[in-house]
Every structure is written in structure tokens, then in C-alpha cells.
């Protein structure tokens, strides 16, 4: 299971990376915004994308839309982990095809539940 973590803050990437490792996911890579993430996603075989929303350059929602519009990437599971908490944003992410939405600050438990739920649905 290869996972890409996209967040503009290195500390947040590190926190997510550690939590994922605790869940048994050790193969992770990092990118600091959508525009650096997209080429990585296209050139490599990632199984899962965890992304922030608010980033300089290309935002998480733009990345999500670009992923869904890409033939190769369109079914890639995407979890959004973000401080963005407006209802219209959550609806927009859902409509754009997000697989899970975790609001910051979050607990390890919340992240674990969402990831498990995503893979249950993807595998089932």
C-alpha cells in the first residue's frame, strides 16, 4: 500500500505519516501542494491519497478534481484532512468525489476510522 501525503506544513505531514505508520502503512511519500503532488501521482502507482485543502499553488480541492478527471487516477481513494469546515466546502468535496473528510484538529482514532471505512468500501 503506497500512500501520498499532501500538506504545505511539514509538521502536519509528519504527524499524518506517523499515524499512518502506527496503522501499519509504512510506504508513504510527501508533497507540499497539489502541483507537486499531481506529477508524482501520475508517474507512480499510489494506492491512496491524503490531502489538505488550503495550500499555496494548487489547492487540495483542485487536486481532487484533477485526480477525478484523470483516466488513470480517477478511482484513486482520496481522504481530505483539512481545517476547512464550511458546509458548502464539505458538500463541494463530496460532489467532487472525495472518499473521506476529516476536519483538523483530528484524533488518531478519527483518521483510523475514516481510512478503514474507505478501504472497506473500496475492497467490498
Amino acid at each position: 500500500m503506497k500512500i501520498l501525503i499532501v500538506d504545505d506544513f511539514s509538521t502536519m505531514r509528519r504527524i499524518i505519516k506517523n499515524l499512518l505508520r502506527d496503522l501499519g502503512f509504512t510506504n508513504t511519500q510527501e508533497a507540499d501542494d497539489g502541483s507537486s503532488a499531481l506529477p508524482l501521482l501520475k508517474s507512480s502507482d499510489f494506492d491512496f491519497l491524503v490531502t489538505d485543502w488550503n495550500m499555496p499553488g494548487m489547492t487540495g480541492i483542485e487536486l481532487l478534481k484533477a485526480v477525478r478527471a484523470d483516466e488513470k487516477l480517477q478511482s484513486l481513494p482520496v481522504l481530505m484532512v483539512t481545517a476547512e469546515a464550511k458546509r458548502e466546502q464539505i458538500i463541494e468535496a463530496a460532489q467532487a468525489g472525495v472518499n473521506g473528510y476529516v476536519v483538523k484538529p483530528f484524533t488518531a482514532q478519527a483518521l483510523k476510522e475514516k481510512i478503514e471505512k474507505i478501504f472497506e468500501r473500496v475492497d467490498g
Binding site: A85, K86, R87, I90, V103
Partner: peptide, 21 residues
Amino acid sequence: AVGAEGPIINAEERDDVVTSQ
């Protein structure tokens, strides 16, 4: 548009934002 706003610091006073997971 639906712009990014960052952390909501007065979620209790607003009805357009969520306050928990």
C-alpha cells in the same frame, strides 16, 4: 466561489460551518 478560509475560530457563532467530525 468556495474559497479556503483556514481554521474557523468562531464556529459556535456561525451556522455555515461544522463544529466537529
